[in-house]
Design a protein around this nucleic acid. Sequence first.
DNA 1: GCCATAATTAACCAAATGGTTAACAAAGGT
DNA 2: ACCTTTGTTAACCATTTGGTTAATTATGGC
Lengths: 204, 204
Amino acid sequence: MAKRNKDTGAEEKILAAARKVFIAKGMAGARMQDIADEAGINKALLHYYFKSKEQLFETIFTEVMGNLIPRIKSLLLSDLSLYEKIEQFCDQYISVISQNPYLPIFILNELHKQPSVMIAKMFGGGLPDLHKFTAQIEKEVKSGKIKPISPVHLIMNMMGLCIFPFLGKPLLSAILGIDALQFQLAMEQRKKAMPQFIFDAIRK
Amino acid sequence: MAKRNKDTGAEEKILAAARKVFIAKGMAGARMQDIADEAGINKALLHYYFKSKEQLFETIFTEVMGNLIPRIKSLLLSDLSLYEKIEQFCDQYISVISQNPYLPIFILNELHKQPSVMIAKMFGGGLPDLHKFTAQIEKEVKSGKIKPISPVHLIMNMMGLCIFPFLGKPLLSAILGIDALQFQLAMEQRKKAMPQFIFDAIRK
DNA sequence: GCCATAATTAACCAAATGGTTAACAAAGGT
DNA sequence: ACCTTTGTTAACCATTTGGTTAATTATGGC
């Protein structure tokens, strides 16, 4: 008898399917049947491997976040200069998101619907330590190398400049009249343009 | 007999309730029963005034968008200088969103789930005309008053800097360790700080 | 070959959910 | 007073949906 699914590894296929469906439709919009179909298996098999939608979602969410957070933590804790950190932050953030363009809206959306629960799932008690980074900013400000700016605003700015275009892609594409390729190109440019923009803004 | 609901005007109450519930939970997450409860009426009465969830959602969505778009269109088409436009854009955008902090995630989320449908609902064929604004930017660039920057990037930057903090509020509050009041204060500051930041970035 | 265990499925179930019906109450015109 | 139209409700219905069951099919050790 020919096997129904060429490659085995049902659990893998389920995870891949769940990732895809949850990220595309969110927790509320995703259907267990969709995930089963996407994985090419029976719905009951989903519950054989993952006892509930809740649990499957949590698995995916923590997996996704566990992929992003260490990257950022290590960057912010490194010994690079402020300029280098901003450079790398923009480059890395835009690169990762370019490869997973729907991650931001997925994450922010779930975070918005249940803030405390999701924050807890993301950082198991251990929030990222921004102290080193904020101290670095404050030092540059005090020593007069850059204009006065609060770390809070600078961080918001960095994130907004890198992430927003992906969140707003459908809107931006429409009003700016750009297609997928032009968008991709623009994102590529922003890897270098954003650090430049930020430094031009804060340099004295 | 005492009336169940002090004030009449069921339709008004339904719209208010639907706005609240849809914006908080999105189309997929909202329940018709939630809306009925929120409005203090029977679920059947919802369908008396609005024949389906789809139609009620559409009513709310177009209402909400119809509130925002003209404001922006008129700003971009006005005769203000580039600096003044950026100033007003940031001030107005941040003001409006501060009063409806969940609008952005609601809009971008629905836009993400059905881009073409929602874009069509937002702009009934008449996309906002950015030509005047982009020409203004290009003129300032050519005349050497500001650094070379593509209108596409500048617009993305303006929007990202103004809107992102609201989209990322739960995340930002957590990692930056700020409470609702501090957040509100920061947004107030950004009304002036963002135009300054942007102009510092592009001025030669 | 035989058996225990793991993988997989079709059929089923109960709760949730969008939507409908039919009856009833209010309001307003005549 | 009477009738028509509008507003409102409780009960009901059909479908969707997350989840379960019981039976069937590999799989691997012996």
